[in-house]
């Protein structure tokens, strides 16, 4: 459904992504793990066209092109078929929870307002925040904001939703509620690509784990295999370090 081949990206001469290839199938829940600075965020941002890539090929939603050759229309197509959940939520500060969700539906998808509100209420229901629909982001806790962020993404019914460390800006006691919502999403068959430091999520919820380091995919595969019997030394070291810290 989504295929990335040889994706490259650099900043000011520093190569950050050194040729990444990923295959995402419908219903996949993929966890991307790896040390800080390994390029995980950059990977999500280049795939979703928030950053321009330097090289590579994308096949997705009818677009089948090299990244450099993407035109405005292709970029629109890609953006309309992905959802993005940001690490720091990025809810529209001047919109209520409900409006945060209807905004994209009404403005970008040209859905009628009444229809959009119905969809938005459904989405809020799924993340357990129906009673907060008229709250502004500043009146919500971090966990609630992130759940609205997730609702905003699912309301658009995209082919795949990208999550960039959705829980790492949260106070520890709020992580659970967001993970729970994500788990429900995964169980309902939503295609998800999740950058995360929550090893429990990677191990128990996803069906594939990708370990990234230094702009490369070092290893990927079944969570069980990666966690219990990684074939690469770097993966082993990363997992020992991170699990020791939990």
């Amino acid at each position: 459904m989504l295929t990335i081949e040889g994706l490259k990206k650099g900043y000011e001469g520093n190569e950050i992504l050194k040729g990444i290839s990923i295959d995402v199938n419908k219903g996949d829940v993929i966890s991307i793990i790896g040390p800080s600075g390994s390029g995980k965020t950059t990977l999500l941002r280049t795939i979703t066209t928030l950053e321009a890539a330097d090289g590579g090929h994308i096949t997705f939603a009818g677009v089948d092109k090299d990244f450099e050759k993407l035109n405005g229309k292709d970029i629109n197509t890609i953006r309309r078929n992905v959802g993005f959940v940001f690490q720091n939520y990025n809810l529209f500060n001047n919109k209520t929870a409900l409006q945060n969700i209807t905004e994209g539906l009404i403005v970008a998808r040209k859905v009628k307002k009444s229809e959009a509100e119905k969809i938005a209420l459904d989405a809020l229901e799924r993340v357990g925040l129906s009673d907060r629909k008229n709250h502004y982001p500043s009146q919500l806790s971090g966990g609630q904001q992130q759940r609205v962020g997730i609702a905003r993404a699912i309301a658009l019914n995209p082919e795949v939703i990208f999550f960039d460390e959705p829980t790492s800006a949260l106070d520890p006691e709020l992580v659970g509620e967001v993970l729970k919502v994500m788990q429900d999403l995964a169980n309902s068959g939503t295609t998800m690509v999740v950058v995360t430091h929550q090893m429990s999520f990677a191990r128990d919820v996803s069906n594939r784990v990708i370990f990234m380091a230094d702009g490369h995919i070092v290893e990927q595969g079944d969570p069980k295999k990666i966690f219990e019997n990684p074939s690469e030394e770097r993966t082993k070291k990363f997992l020992t370090d991170i699990l020791a810290n939990v």
Binding site: R79, R80, F86, N88, N90, F92, N94, E103, V107, A108
Partner: peptide, 29 residues
């Protein structure tokens, strides 16, 4: 925050739409 524009783009808005509906109202206030 530039994340406001990015969030707008990620729900499918054109940059111009995100500017008028999200960025400018916040800046004015």
């Amino acid at each position: 925050d530039k994340g406001q524009m990015e969030a707008g783009l990620m729900v499918g808005m054109q940059p111009r739409q995100a500017f008028w509906r999200i960025i400018l109202p916040q800046a004015l206030i």
